[in-house]
Amino acid sequence: MKPMEPMKPMSGGEAWWPKDLGEPSTSGGQNDTQYAFFPEKHRLAVRRDGKVTVYDSGDHRIGGVQQAQGGESSLAFTSQKGSVRLDELRQV
């Protein structure tokens, strides 16, 4: 009997955010929305329905996403300062 081969790591998929942002410190998604946070560049990339939008995260350090049913205004992120809504961040 042939010995088992080690498992190959799963691919994280293709990077959907702009390449000039580098690698995110955190990323995730919920329903039809994905996000990636780039602390060195103070940027938050959000992909909804295939469209990517980049925001200036200011001094927020994004660590997670919260989303209630009901559209873009309900999308919020957790930071060291508490919850920050997407519509509070400036689009770049």
Rank of each mutant, 00 (worst) to 15 (best):
R43H: 08
D59V: 08
K8I: 13
G28F: 02
G63D: 07
T26V: 15
V46P: 06
A36P: 03
P6C: 05
V84C: 07
E40I: 00
F77Q: 04
K51G: 00
F77R: 11
Y55M: 09
S74E: 15
T78M: 11
H42R: 12
A45T: 04
F77P: 02
D87G: 11
A68C: 04
D32K: 07
P39F: 06
Y55R: 06
G82E: 08
P39D: 03
F38W: 04
D87K: 14
Q69P: 07
G29S: 03
E40C: 00
V52G: 02
D59R: 07
V46F: 01
D59N: 14
E5C: 08
R47K: 15
Q69M: 13
R85D: 01
V54T: 10
R85L: 12
E72L: 12
Y35S: 04
G71C: 07
L21H: 07
G58T: 03
T26W: 02
S83V: 15
R85S: 13
K81Y: 15
V92P: 13
Q30G: 00
M1R: 12
K41Q: 14
G13H: 06
G63M: 11
V52K: 05
D32Y: 07
V92S: 09
D32Q: 10
S83C: 08
K51Q: 13
V54Y: 07
T78D: 08
R43G: 01
R43L: 02
V92M: 14
V92E: 13
I62C: 07
R90Y: 05
R61A: 12
K41G: 01
D49S: 12
E23V: 12
G22I: 11
G50R: 04
